[in-house]
Design a protein around this nucleic acid. Structure first.
Length: 423
RNA sequence: AGAGAGUUGGGUGAGUGGCUGAAACCAACAGUUUGCUAAACUGUCGUACGGGUUAAACUGUACCGGGGGUUCGAAUCCCCCACUCUCUGCCA
């Protein structure tokens, strides 16, 4: 969430930013925030003053009792009862004000970076670049959901039997392709200086709040209700939460972590005709990169991540494009997001395979992720993350784009990992 | 899962009702000394939210696993919860 100080000190920037987000009533929301913050301060001030008085009296009682002046003690005790009443009232309204303020702040999305285009939907995203050649496919080309059936490498019906829709079973070369991609992505990340992390894939409530899945997107996660744990929708959640409540040193930067995990998404209400096959699943594999960055260089880090992800797509010989998301399409917590899309040649569609975002201090504020600057003051760090990469749509594109009469050719870089060169 | 013990600042660890935001030691940081390193010595050394200041200085409040209670006053007493350790059981 945003810092109230940011809202107060950069009011105009915040307001224009929120308008880019198409947030209705931005003015009145911000006004309410400032108002609540002011009454929070006033209330705290009153409470603290009374509390100070009460503390002084208690100290005095201690001394009087030591001197055996019990009559005087009884006298001033009466005064504290009065003060205590007042403190209690103030305490209650203070808690109430703080809670309303917090709830209100939760409803305010991050302020978009200046380069984020205005716009309402995916239509308005800006195409930054396009790279690679779109293949011409032979007669009788098939979409991946036909290919996997024909080749018997991914089985959706079997997944339905075991679990339900959206939980495919990968078999034979299909399973080996998954494993090869995961290893390839992790090895590439190591070469690029990332530290490999294997986090838990169930997280507690605090972690959900830390990265912003809670309280709003509760319905998007599977929950183990008995233990009040959530299956992660992305490795971003556990890997970023490593740094919850941390105070780093400037010398700790940059922090670059990579982790492979399965991801679980309920995807409630987001199914339709265009999400056949591997395009949308409840469980899928993803390798995620997470940066914790010094605020001054977080946008350099974002570019670095974008180039890194593009490099992976180039190595996999997939045609791709990079989009800068518009204010209306960007995630709630992001300040700037690049989406990477690959062209899946049989479906003739662009598929999102990565989303690289700078959250600036928005997540860090919830996480209480700070660092100590040269003046020994604590400052919020910046967090960034991106998929590198999400597997299912990569698999879909590899299968569709590389189909030949002789079978599906595997990308050169994967062959050492696969142990075969076509399916 | 059952029984017992525990949870204090970056670490070890003292503290059983007021003089404790918290001893001592270690680590860290700055300085003195030194041919260099080491040692020794001196100092600094929690977080959050307020007040104050151009900025500091200074100052108020809260925080000793989390929440609640008793009390004029709680790290210290009581209750609930979480977690950790030991033993027993079970198990990949």
């Amino acid at each position: 969430m945003l810092l109230v100080n940011t809202i107060r000190e950069n009011y105009d920037t915040v307001l224009t930013g929120l308008k880019k987000r198409n947030l209705p009533n931005a003015e009145s929301i911000l006004a309410k925030v400032l108002e609540l913050d002011q009454s929070r301060k006033d209330t705290q001030n009153q409470r603290d003053t009374l509390q100070a008085e009460s503390n002084a009296i208690s100290k005095q009682i201690g001394m009087l009792m030591k001197e055996g002046k019990n009559a005087e003690v009884e006298q001033i005790k009466a005064r504290t009862t009065e003060i205590k009443e007042q403190i209690k009232t103030l305490e209650e309204s203070f808690a109430q004000i703080e809670e309303s303020l917090k709830q209100l702040l939760y409803t305010i999305p991050n302020v978009p970076h200046v380069s984020v285009p205005f716009g309402k939907s995916a239509e308005d995203n800006e195409i930054v670049l396009q790279n690679g050649t779109i293949p011409t496919l032979p007669e009788g080309k098939l979409p991946h959901w036909e290919l996997i059936k024909k080749l018997d490498i991914i089985d959706f019906e079997l997944g339905v039997k075991i679990t339900g829709a959206g939980f495919p079973v990968y078999k034979g070369k299909g399973a080996r392709l998954q494993r090869a991609l995961i290893n390839f992505f992790l090895d590439e990340a190591l070469k690029a200086g990332y530290t490999e992390i294997q986090p838990p894939i169930l997280v507690n409530e605090d972690s959900g709040y830390g990265t912003g899945q809670l309280p709003d997107k509760e319905g998007q996660m599977y929950e183990a209700t008995v233990d009040r744990l959530f299956l992660i929708p992305t490795a971003e959640v556990p890997i970023t939460n490593i740094y919850r409540d941390a105070i780093l040193n400037e010398s700790d930067f940059p922090i670059k972590n990579v982790g492979y995990t399965p991801c679980f998404r309920r995807e409630a209400g987001s199914w339709g005709a265009h999400v056949r096959g591997l395009n949308r699943l409840h469980q899928f594999d993803k390798v995620e990169i997470v940066h914790i960055s010094h605020p001054e260089v977080s946008y350099q880090a974002l570019e670095e991540m974008s180039l890194y992800v593009q490099g992976l797509l180039q190595k996999l010989e997939l045609p791709y494009r990079v989009l800068r998301l518009c204010g209306g399409d960007m995630g709630f917590t992001s300040a700037l997001t690049y989406d990477m899309e690959v062209f899946s040649a049989a479906q003739e569609r662009w598929l999102e395979v990565s989303s690289v975002s700078n959250f600036e201090s928005y997540q860090a504020n919830r996480l209480k992720l700070r660092y100590r600057n040269a003046d020994k003051k604590t400052q919020l760090a910046h967090t960034l993350n991106g998929s590198a990469l999400a597997l299912p749509r990569i698999v879909a594109a590899i299968l569709e784009n590389n189909q030949t009469e002789a079978g599906i050719k595997m990308p050169e870089v994967l062959i050492p990992y696969l142990g075969f060169d076509k399916i």
